[in-house]
Design a protein around this nucleic acid. Structure first.
Length: 279
DNA sequence: CTCAGTGTTCAGTG
DNA sequence: TCACTGAACACTGA
């Protein structure tokens, strides 16, 4: 559940379930890839008996603040997620309508926590591209310290935003995907933002006019805020969004307004864009 | 069977 | 050194 809106929704869930509670049970699935070489015993020892004081997020990274360090940090990769029993699952837009049942803990669970009030949380990751780490000060250490501005909480003022664009020659689509520029933007958000800002994805970032840069910033803020307000429930995203029409076998060739959608690889990812609208 | 996919990292290039 | 690109990673579902 990768992009910022899903991670922010996971943060709110974690906050509700865990904040103020003590961890009374920790179970790690042995997985040296996802746990990045932290042995399960070490991880369990760091968490067991601790009280959760808060839940932080920057970009797509999430971490629990405990009454003793180090703290656990989560990145969900392409297919990871945070779950609570009975809670509506934040569905991946790309795997619509398929919920793999209501098993608890869910399939592919890597980390399973129980709290002193009976609450539970599980971290799953089918594809194993996610990471679970321990850090003494998450925001001050890699990989989080290397991130750029958080795309929900700290988008720079216009003047500064335009300066950042001028400093980069990469295709603007690639820049949006660069986490050291805007932390939290992923593939569909980048495409959505460029569509709404009416900018072609291959345009070098530094070639954007001030008016285009301004549109880009406005669209970024709006797309992120709207998706977060919808709690990352894609069914609640505006019908006019490119999002609803970019996928699948019905990779619909057109938007709701009848504009032709084109798919091509840019900066290593598939970009979906509308040449008749994006210049 | 093959391939794409809400990501990140690292080697290689200019 | 820097900016950028493309392959690798790992695995499911179409």
């Amino acid at each position: 559940m990768p992009e910022l809106p899903e991670v922010e929704t996971a943060r709110l869930l974690a906050q509700r379930v865990a904040t103020g509670r003590r961890i009374v049970g920790v179970r790690c699935t042995p997985d040296p890839i996802v746990f990045e070489a932290v042995p399960p015993a070490r991880f369990e020892e760091a968490l067991a008996g601790r009280r959760v004081t808060g839940v932080g997020r920057h970009g797509k990274h999430l971490w629990f603040e405990l009454d003793r360090r180090p703290w656990p940090c989560l990145h969900f990769g392409m297919a990871g997620g945070l779950h609570a029993p009975g809670a509506r699952r934040v569905k991946l837009a790309s795997s619509r309508a398929r919920d793999a049942g209501d098993a608890w803990p869910p399939r592919f669970t890597k980390l399973w926590l129980r709290f002193d009030d009976g609450g539970e949380l599980a971290v799953s990751d089918a594809r194993r591209l996610g990471r679970i780490r321990l850090r003494r000060d998450p925001a001050a250490e890699p990989p989080i310290s290397r991130l750029g501005f958080d795309a929900l909480l700290s988008v720079p003022p216009l003047r500064q935003f335009l300066d950042l664009l001028k400093a980069r020659g990469a295709p603007v689509k690639g820049l949006l995907l660069d986490q050291s520029f805007a932390a939290g933007v992923g593939n569909w958000i980048a495409d959505e933002v460029l569509y709404q800002a009416q900018i072609a994805p291959r345009r070098p970032a530094r070639s954007l006019s001030a008016a285009e840069g301004r549109r880009l910033r406005t669209a970024l803020v709006r797309v992120i805020a709207t998706a977060v307000a919808a709690r990352a429930d894609s069914d609640r995203y505006p019908r006019s969004w490119l999002f609803h029409r970019r996928w699948g076998r019905q990779r619909n060739a057109t938007t709701t307004r009848g504009e032709k959608i084109r798919h091509e690889a840019i900066a290593g990812r598939t970009a979906a864009w509308v040449p008749s609208v994006q210049r």
